[in-house]
């Protein structure tokens, strides 16, 4: 009796461990496969059956990526576009999130939600025409501006939910002491909001970084962001898998690292609303 109970528990555990393995392995294997492709020689990449562990680990593919195209420049473009559009989103979005939470201006919150439902192309066509009309095409500015479509709603949304949970006692005390609303925000609420700001900043940076379609249409040869550059590697050059996988990893590695940094916040429910943009 005792033994069968023990056996049953063991079996139960074994089955559970197996289900954990089944659940996690697709994510892990595809990412490891990308890593493997990027660190093998072209010879090994073209072998069949596929070679899983490289015979010798090489970083040659990564060097090739930077040699064959101005990848450093594209990396910089991505940093500028996502960095600036996130910065602007923080400057306007953090006070706005505070204001919306305090004034309970829910119609504005709904507006940003509808923005999330709209396909990215619907912003792209009018703004493309506008940028052509104004003559901004060919610089990084159109990219920075259109990425605000992604970053502003994310920051506003994250900040609304953050400021809603912040107890109002401290600011009210400040107001009674004669602070203006702005001073109460600046000196009381804002310092407390730092964790929320970090999460909003990282999420908005990630989704701006990941965006492909805005750059695919708006960017010229000099102003490509990384996802666009990687796509061009695929279409225009001799398709070599090693450099391709290396390029893909360079693009997505910063995002994966940031995800690990804020995984707790992602898990604790920021997903339920509206984080994904574009």
């Amino acid at each position: 009796m005792d033994l069968t109970a023990k056996l049953k528990r063991l079996l139960d555990r074994g089955l559970f461990a197996l289900s954990v393995l089944v659940v996690v392995s697709p994510a892990a294997l595809v990412i490891l496969w990308m890593l493997s492709l990027s660190m093998k020689t072209e010879l090994e990449n073209m072998e069949y059956p596929p070679v899983f562990l490289p015979g010798e680990f090489t970083l040659r593919n990564y060097v090739t990526v930077f040699e064959n195209s101005p990848f450093g420049r594209y990396l910089w473009n991505s940093i500028v576009v996502s960095g600036l559009s996130t910065l602007v989103a923080l400057l306007v979005g953090v006070p706005a999130g505070y204001g919306i939470a305090k004034a309970q201006a829910w119609r504005l919150a709904v507006l940003t939600l509808i923005a999330r439902m709209t396909p990215g192309l619907s912003f792209l066509i009018p703004l493309y025409i506008l940028f052509q009309f104004v003559g901004l095409v060919g610089t990084l500015w159109p990219m920075v501006i259109i990425h605000l479509v992604i970053t502003v709603p994310i920051v506003v949304y994250v900040m609304i939910s953050f400021f809603e949970t912040l107890p109002p006692d401290l600011e009210e005390a400040a107001l009674i002491d004669g602070c203006t609303a702005w001073q109460a925000f600046r000196h009381v609420a804002l310092p407390l909001a730092r964790p929320g700001i970090v999460v909003g900043a990282i999420l908005s940076f990630i989704f701006s970084w990941n965006n492909f379609i805005f750059g695919a249409v708006l960017a010229g040869r000099e102003t490509r962001t990384l996802p666009v550059a990687v796509y061009n590697v695929l279409t225009f050059e001799q398709v070599a898998w090693g450099p391709l996988a290396a390029a893909a990893l360079i693009v997505t590695l910063p995002v994966l690292v940031l995800t690990v940094v804020i995984q707790k916040e992602i898990v604790s429910g920021l997903t339920a609303g509206s984080v994904k943009g574009g």
């Binding site: 492709l37 990630i206 997505t252 992602i266």
Partner: peptide, 26 residues
């Protein structure tokens, strides 16, 4: 659990173009 859950959520944050490239090769 924490580590495995982090690995599990990586795909949804990964750059779609990079994801598409790997799947194209697969």
């Amino acid at each position: 659990r924490g580590l495995l859950r982090t690995i599990f959520i990586l795909p949804m944050m990964a750059t779609p173009v990079a994801v598409a490239l790997v799947w194209t090769m697969m």
